[in-house]
């Protein structure tokens, strides 16, 4: 019985960890995050657990998050568009030990909000926005990124 309880408590603490660093948000909060002034370069990546190229490039964002104190990485999950249960996202964060901030967007009808985030975005995943809020410069990429590309894009608007 004891080991089982220990296992149970461990299991739940892990799941709680994922929920603590994750926030389910509405469009308004995402827009606030995009527009907020910051001393750091904001890197916002749109992804989903079902998106293979997204999963492939996530280590690049994690690396950036751990190595660069002048950069603020946010991973915005689009999972709820297809599945209202966020459990898959929590499990992914646990399994991969994701350290970057994760926001889960809870909005229906993407046609109403995609243009409010980025006009050049078709809605296809993955997509990444890089913002220097001090100069107002912004980069947008709608494809999978490869080693070194993020650093190069950031350097262009530093």
């Amino acid at each position: 019985m004891r080991p089982f309880l220990l296992f149970l408590s461990l299991f739940f603490s892990v799941a709680l960890y994922a929920q603590e660093q994750t926030e389910i948000i509405k469009l308004k909060q995402l827009q606030d995050h995009l527009h907020a002034k910051s001393d750091r370069i904001k890197v916002i990546n749109f992804w989903a657990t079902w998106c293979a190229p997204c999963i492939k490039e996530i280590p690049l964002f994690e690396k950036l998050n751990s190595e660069r104190s002048d950069v603020e990485v946010t991973l915005v999950s689009m999972d709820l568009d297809l599945d209202p249960n966020p459990e898959k996202v929590y499990r992914f964060i646990d399994r991969r030990k994701i350290k970057s901030k994760v926001l889960i967007l809870d909005e229906r009808n993407p046609n109403m909000w995609i243009n409010q985030i980025e006009k050049n975005w078709s809605g296809a995943l993955p997509a990444t926005i890089i913002i220097n809020s001090k100069t107002g410069q912004r980069k947008f990429v709608e494809r999978e990124l490869h080693e070194g590309e993020l650093e190069a894009l950031i350097a262009e608007i530093l």
Partner: peptide
């Protein structure tokens, strides 16, 4: 014209 979240099309050399 409408937009939607979706899987990006896998093009060669991209």
């Amino acid at each position: 014209r409408t937009k939607a979240v979706g899987c990006s099309i896998k093009l060669k050399n991209s």
